[in-house]
Design a protein around this nucleic acid. Structure first.
Lengths: 305, 305
DNA sequence: GTTCCGCATGAATCGATAG
DNA sequence: ACTATCGATTCATGCGGAA
């Protein structure tokens, strides 16, 4: 197991990378310490070259020990965001995601919500008995009914209809006696004057990223960014136990959240380390020689200094 | 129980309405006779005024006898399309839909696909711990891996993204051995060159119809229309065991599919009968006096002739 | 005849209040 | 304590009357 640290960053923001098995590293983290977990674990029978490809009929038993540790390290006010989608097995959608939700509830997780990630640009393709799969599940789990949620951070521009009408409404209101506003035209009209943003829904429309061909990220940066905005504040701690190409860590770092990433693949850990250093170097006040440590469990040491 | 028939229609298309309990009427239908089932049953704890509101913890056991009959009456090549969505119970999404899928598979159903109906105009509201719910499940079940599917009937204008993407393909790519074309486009790249229509995805973007004040339809006409196009041909038989305001029957009739609708509410049955007659009267060659029969189990007869 | 605007209306959900 | 009811919140849509 290897530890990579990018050391102090602006505002004392840290990004830590643990190379090795998620279950082992998670056991070393203190309980109730993480504000948000965002991850996209290897799907069943997928990524066989990198993760060994968990068979779909063993997926639940493989994931449960990990979710048990995630439940331990998450703060009571924290949130676990799980991006996952069942694959097709012999013409049917596999049921391991549903079984996982049911089992995680038995562990103590609350299944608060299921967001839909609508993948706007999925490549064309054709099959005789099904269409292109253009959505994935983003499951929200919590430890308690009360959790931190900063809804104002993710408001979106209001639809065209309301946009046009409210603009006209506010024009009228400007020339009208203020006392009449709120009494003559509906009691809550004042809430709508000069508003151009609305709260989003539980359907996210995001394009898949297809620019970096060397490493295919599990999800686009907008996905962790949206949930990091929604569920954390600056200086909070974000965890991704299946870091992969490090999208979650990169976004968390840019948004001034502390972060921990775990991955079995040394190549991924090294790559994310480099990307984090590059991002730091491109900041207004880059450190000339950012401290980066790589620690192997066998005592082997490597790194940039 | 009451039987309403609109009798012969153009092309010998029939629409039958059975008033009463779905389980009882379904038992009277012959096995392997229905090409497509499209329905939106009353959701748990919803519609208490009309359907009594099935408690969410009794939903599965309530539905299983019905799905058992649906499995019997469906043709081997047929499809069952189930529109449903779980509600929030004590801060959590209820799990009865997932449990229903698992139990229906034990009955012998294949869970082929899950479509997402993105409700563009979702119910408004604001809560501290969740956003508006803007999607519903549309579950596709089948009896066998091979089923009738007419994909060309639901093709859509190709989006700009795919169009531009295909234009940028080199001539070499277009003429190359399909197996060597990059993984992104799959093996059927030739299907996509110089095409202006694309196959849709498993995400449907439809607005709910909330204008009809007298009767609120469970789903907009576009929803059953899309699946009727996709899974049936003219003169096929479409069944909706929870007819409600009759959206499925109206659309099936207009599209020249035979149809059967079942509903416990006499008011709904009468209303759908009237709407069907009106629609027929508005056709190019309306029948002056369409035969309509209403049959009560107790022997009471009513109707227009 | 268009375009514009007021309005009612949802498969909703939470928290407070009442029995 | 546990359940039932009610008010408050919120926004896209189409209809109908008005400009």
């Amino acid at each position: 197991m290897t530890l990579v640290e990018t050391g102090e960053r602006i505002m004392d923001i840290q990004a830590k990378i643990y190379q090795g098995d998620s279950r082992e590293w998670l056991r070393k983290l203190s309980e109730n310490s993480v504000d948000l977990i965002v991850t996209s674990p290897p799907y069943a029978d997928q990524r066989k070259n990198t993760y060994g490809g968990i068979p779909h009929d063993q997926y639940v038993e493989w994931f449960l020990p990990i979710s048990e540790q995630l439940l331990r390290v998450l703060k009571p006010t924290g949130t676990f965001v799980l991006n996952i989608k069942e694959k097709v097995v012999e013409g049917e959608r596999s049921t391991y995601v549903m079984e996982l939700i049911l089992e995680m509830r038995k562990q103590g997780w609350l299944w608060t919500e299921e967001f839909i990630w609508h993948k706007k640009n999925s490549y064309p393709g054709k099959w005789p008995n099904r269409f292109r799969d253009a959505w994935e599940r983003v499951l929200q789990f919590n430890k308690h009914k009360k959790f931190n949620m900063y809804q104002d951070a993710v408001m979106v521009p209001m639809g065209d209809w309301a946009q046009a009408r409210l603009k006209n409404l506010s024009e009228v209101d400007k020339t009208r006696d203020p006392s009449k506003v709120g009494s003559g035209f509906g009691k809550n009209i004042s809430n709508w004057v000069n508003r151009d943003k609305a709260y989003p829904t539980n359907v996210l429309h995001l394009a898949t990223e297809c620019n970096n061909k060397s490493h295919s990220a599990a999800f686009p940066e907008e996905l962790p960014e949206w949930f990091i905005k929604l569920f954390t504040q600056e200086n909070d701690l974000v965890l991704d136990p299946f870091m992969g190409s490090g999208t979650t860590l990169m976004v968390a770092n840019r948004m001034k959240r502390n972060s921990i990433g775990i991955d079995v693949m040394p190549e991924y850990c090294d790559m994310v380390k480099i990307h984090l250093a590059q991002a730091e170097f491109n900041l207004p006040n880059p450190k000339t020689n950012p401290p980066v440590n790589v620690e192997h469990p066998a005592g082997i040491r490597t790194g940039t200094n």
